[in-house]
């Protein structure tokens, strides 16, 4: 599903190249559950953004579903986002002007899912994450943990093929955290590919494979 060949990522600041990713070679098959680990600043988020086609590599090739991504236009990319990928961000990123309910509904709207199906999907998800009581609140009325929960819920609501999660449990208590992990495990067993960034060994253990990053290089995978 995902194939990275010699991926480099650098930033040029006053003519000095700062490497963030160096020569990453990776293959992730459909149905895998991968955890990316490494110290802060090692390039985990950057790697995830490149896999999610939110960022572009400086050099190297990336194939998503057998297709070379650098040839994809903006339109094709947003089609992939819409239909195949669900994101959970490190800093949750909800739309401030929309309520919890509406935030969950938005990806369904972009997928042009009919009103009645949308309603039942949102209701199910609210139920599953036990946030029914919060559905009419705005993000700034929620705690960090609750926001993160909504972020995860929004990523899974469209049942995407691939979930990219950047520290999905960073702000959750351990009970909530393990619930999310259980959910991921269940989704994974139903066929969803999951790539998560995490600092926690415990969370990593839910996955089947761990990729270690250090200074932009894969040290083990």
């Amino acid at each position: 599903m995902i194939k990275l060949n010699h991926i480099f990522k650098w930033y040029t600041n006053s003519f000095v190249k700062t490497y963030v990713l160096r020569d990453i070679n990776l293959e992730i098959k459909e149905g895998e559950f991968v955890s990316v680990m490494g110290p802060s600043g090692s390039g985990k988020s950057t790697l995830l953004h490149i896999i999610g086609m939110l960022d572009e590599q400086s050099d190297g090739e990336y194939f998503f579903l057998e297709e070379p991504t650098h040839t994809l236009g903006e339109k094709a990319r947003s089609e992939l986002h819409k239909n195949h990928i669900g994101f959970v961000f490190q800093s949750y990123h909800l739309i401030d002007d929309l309520t919890v309910y509406e935030n969950l509904e938005t990806p369904l709207l972009y997928k042009k899912i009919g009103a009645s199906e949308r309603k039942s999907l949102v209701a199910d998800t609210l139920d599953r994450f036990q946030i029914v009581g919060k559905k009419d609140l705005f993000p700034n009325q929620l705690s960090g943990g609750q926001q993160q929960l909504v972020g995860v819920a929004r990523a899974v609501i469209t049942s995407p093929k691939l979930i990219l999660a950047d520290e999905p449990t960073g702000n959750l208590n351990s009970a909530q955290g393990s619930e999310i992990m259980e959910l991921f495990k269940k989704l994974n067993s139903e066929g969803t590919t999951i790539i998560q960034v995490t600092h926690s060994e415990k969370n990593a253990s839910y996955g089947k494979r761990i990729i270690n990053l250090l200074d932009g290089r894969v040290t083990s995978s």
Binding site: L54, E74, S78, H81, F87, D96, Y110
Partner: peptide
């Protein structure tokens, strides 16, 4: 921020 999120959710330009 809203624009960024909408784009990751699949909104086209």
């Amino acid at each position: 921020k809203e624009i960024g999120i909408r784009k990751t959710l699949g909104s086209g330009r």
